[in-house]
Design a protein around this nucleic acid. Structure first.
Length: 474
RNA sequence: GCUCCCAUCGUCUAGUGGCCUAGGACGCUGGCCUCUCACGCCGGUAACAGGGGUUCGAAUCCCCUUGGGAGCGCCA
C-alpha cells in the first residue's frame, strides 16, 4: 500500500448530545492526528434521516470546538472529500452497490423483517448464533427480477463465504482473528434503498483516506465485515485501534443514572475544557506527568500503547480534581470571564480584583462564585443551620460588641476581632466562628480579613445589629 | 445461548519473570500552616479476584473458576 498521509477521524451520528465516552474517542483521534502532524477529520453519520437532526449536528460541532478539538477536514473546514455528511453521499454508495452486485458479491434478499426476527429468535433459543440463513443467496436472477417487478421490497446482502479467516493487527488489542463462518451474509442496503451504517462507514473511511480508525470496542466485531467489504471493492483498508469503553461507577454502561453528563451540561456547569481534556486523556490511558497539560502536551505524550484494555470507570471526583488544577492556571481576567454574567452584575467594578483574590481558592464552579458574590454584595443572607447554632451560642452581647468594634475600627477585621477578644476574653473558634457565621451565614469560606472590606461597614453593621435584635431576650 | 475482549488500592493507573516488604495520582485521613474552608508542605490508609500449574523465582507465563465488558439487527 502506498504511503498515505496520516489521518484519523471522528464520525459521530448526530442523534443526540455528545457525552463523555464519545468525546474521549474524539479526543484520542484528535491527539493522534496532532501528534503525527496529520489530519483530524470530522464526518457526520446521518444515514438515518429520521433520527439525524441538524440541531444535533450543530451542537456536536459546537462541543468539539469548545473543547478545542478542531478538525482540519470536514463540515465547514472543507477538504477534498466533501460532502462530509453521509446523507449527502448517496451517489457514492450507489456506485459501490453496483460494483458489488456486478461482481456477484452482493444479492437481493426478500426475507421479511418478521421472518428474520423469528429465525433469529429460534436460533438463539436453540443455542446457535443468530446468523442469516442464506435463504435468498441462491435466488435465480430471473426470479429476483420478477419479484422486484412485483414491487416486493428487498435488501441487499453482502456475501460472506464460510471457511475463511479475517485477520488484522489492532493497534490496541494486537492481532485479531475472526472466522467468516461466524459472520454470515449481512445487509448493506436496506429495503427502503438507504445504505446500512456498516457500509457507509467503511466506504467513507477508505475513500476519504483515513489511515487510522480509533473507535470504541463495541465496533471490534464489525471490523472483519468492513475489511471484507473493502477488500471486495479493492479499497484501502485503514488501521484500526479499538479502545475500551468507559463505564459508570457501577461498572455498567455509562448512563445518566451513573452520573454521566453531556458535554453541554458540563459546559453549563462551568467545567473548563482543559479540565475535561486532561481527565478524559487519563481515563484508560496514562501519562508520566500528573500535571495539567495543554492539548499540545497531551498530544505529544499520547500513545496507543499506553492505553488500558479493560473498561474504565467514570469518576467525577477525578474530573473535579482537574477542574481545580485548571482553575489554578487561570489568570484573573480568565477567571472573571469564566464566572457568569450574574456574578458580573453583582460585583462593583472597582472591587473585582479584591473579590477575585478573596474568593478564587474557594470556587470550583461559577455557581460558587455567585454564592459568594451574593453573600458579599447583597443584603439578603441565608444562614446555614450550623452557622445559626454558632450565632446562638455566641449570644447577644457578642454581636453588640462586634457592632461597636466595627463602628470604631471600620472594616479592619483584625482590629475588630482583637477588640472582641479583649472585651469578652474569647479566642480561637469561639471568637472567629460566630463572626464568620454572622457575616457570611456560613462556617467556612474565604479569609474574613479579605471579605469584610468587601462586605463593607454598613452591611456588616446591619448584620450584627439584626442579630443583636434577634437574640435579645423577649 | 454462542463468539470475542478484559481483570493491580474505593477510582484512574505503573508494572512485560528477580529492581515489588507492588510505585504514582484522585479520594479519604493525621499533622503543619491557619479564624474556618480551600491552597501549600509533610505523613497515613488501601490492591496483585480465587484455585491450580510452569519456574530456582511469578502481579508478570499457562489452564480452570468467578466477575465485568462487547458483539451476534433492514441501530448507529
Amino acid at each position: 500500500m502506498a504511503l498515505r498521509p496520516f489521518k484519523t477521524r471522528f464520525a459521530p451520528s448526530p442523534t443526540g448530545l455528545l457525552h463523555l465516552g464519545n468525546i474521549r474517542t474524539a479526543l484520542f483521534n484528535y491527539l493522534l492526528a496532532r501528534q503525527a502532524d496529520g489530519t483530524f477529520l470530522l464526518r457526520l453519520e446521518d444515514t438515518d434521516a429520521m433520527r439525524g437532526h441538524e440541531k444535533f449536528a450543530r451542537a456536536l460541532e459546537e462541543d468539539l470546538r469548545w473543547l478545542g478539538l478542531s478538525w482540519n477536514e470536514g463540515p465547514e473546514a472543507g477538504g477534498g472529500h466533501a460532502p462530509y455528511a453521509q446523507s449527502e453521499r448517496g451517489h457514492i454508495y450507489k456506485e459501490y452497490f453496483a460494483a458489488l452486485e456486478s461482481k456477484g458479491l452482493a444479492y437481493p434478499c426478500f426475507c421479511s423483517e418478521h421472518e428474520l426476527a423469528v429465525a433469529r429468535k429460534t436460533a438463539l433459543a436453540a443455542g446457535r448464533p443468530p446468523r442469516y440463513s442464506g435463504k435468498c443467496r441462491a435466488l435465480a436472477r430471473a426470479e429476483a427480477e420478477a419479484r422486484f417487478a412485483r414491487g416486493e421490497p428487498a435488501t441487499l446482502r453482502f456475501r460472506v463465504d464460510d471457511g475463511r479467516t479475517v485477520e488484522f493487527d489492532d493497534k490496541v488489542r494486537e492481532r485479531q482473528t475472526f472466522a467468516t463462518s461466524d459472520i454470515g451474509d449481512f445487509v448493506i442496503r436496506r429495503s427502503d434503498g438507504t445504505p446500512a451504517f456498516f457500509f457507509c462507514n467503511a466506504i467513507d473511511d477508505a475513500v476519504m483516506g483515513v489511515t487510522l480508525v480509533v473507535r470504541g470496542e463495541d465496533h471490534l466485531t464489525n471490523t472483519p465485515r468492513q475489511i471484507l467489504l473493502l477488500q471486495a471493492l479493492g479499497l484501502p483498508v485503514p488501521e484500526y485501534a479499538h479502545i475500551a469503553l468507559v463505564v459508570g461507577a457501577d461498572g455498567a454502561p455509562l448512563s445518566k443514572r451513573t452520573g454521566s453528563r453531556s458535554v453541554q451540561e458540563l459546559r453549563e456547569a462551568g467545567y473548563l475544557p482543559v479540565a475535561i481534556n486532561n481527565y478524559l486523556a487519563r481515563v484508560g490511558h496514562t501519562y508520566d506527568s500528573n500535571a495539567l497539560m495543554s492539548l499540545q502536551a497531551l498530544a505529544e505524550n499520547f500513545g496507543l500503547s499506553r492505553l488500558g484494555r479493560a473498561p474504565a470507570r467514570y469518576d467525577e471526583t477525578q474530573l473535579i480534581h482537574w477542574q481545580h488544577e485548571a482553575l489554578l492556571h487561570l489568570s484573573s481576567a480568565e477567571i472573571w470571564n469564566w464566572m457568569e454574567a450574574k456574578v458580573d452584575a453583582l460585583v462593583p467594578s472597582d472591587k473585582r480584583p479584591a473579590f477575585m483574590d478573596a474568593v478564587r481558592a474557594n470556587v470550583t464552579f461559577p455557581a460558587d462564585a455567585l454564592h459568594w458574590a451574593q453573600i458579599v454584595f447583597t443584603d439578603a443572607l441565608t444562614v446555614s443551620h450550623p452557622a445559626r447554632e454558632s450565632i446562638n451560642a455566641a449570644g447577644e452581647e457578642f454581636f453588640d460588641i462586634a457592632r461597636r468594634a466595627l463602628e470604631k475600627h471600620g472594616a479592619d477585621f483584625k482590629a475588630v476581632s482583637d477588640m472582641l477578644r479583649h472585651q469578652l476574653s474569647v479566642s480561637g473558634k469561639a471568637l472567629f466562628q460566630p463572626l464568620r457565621a454572622a457575616l457570611t451565614g456560613e462556617l467556612d469560606g474565604p479569609e474574613m480579613a479579605k471579605l469584610l472590606p468587601l462586605i463593607g461597614v454598613e452591611r456588616a453593621r446591619n448584620r450584627f445589629l439584626s442579630l443583636s435584635e434577634d437574640l435579645k431576650p423577649k
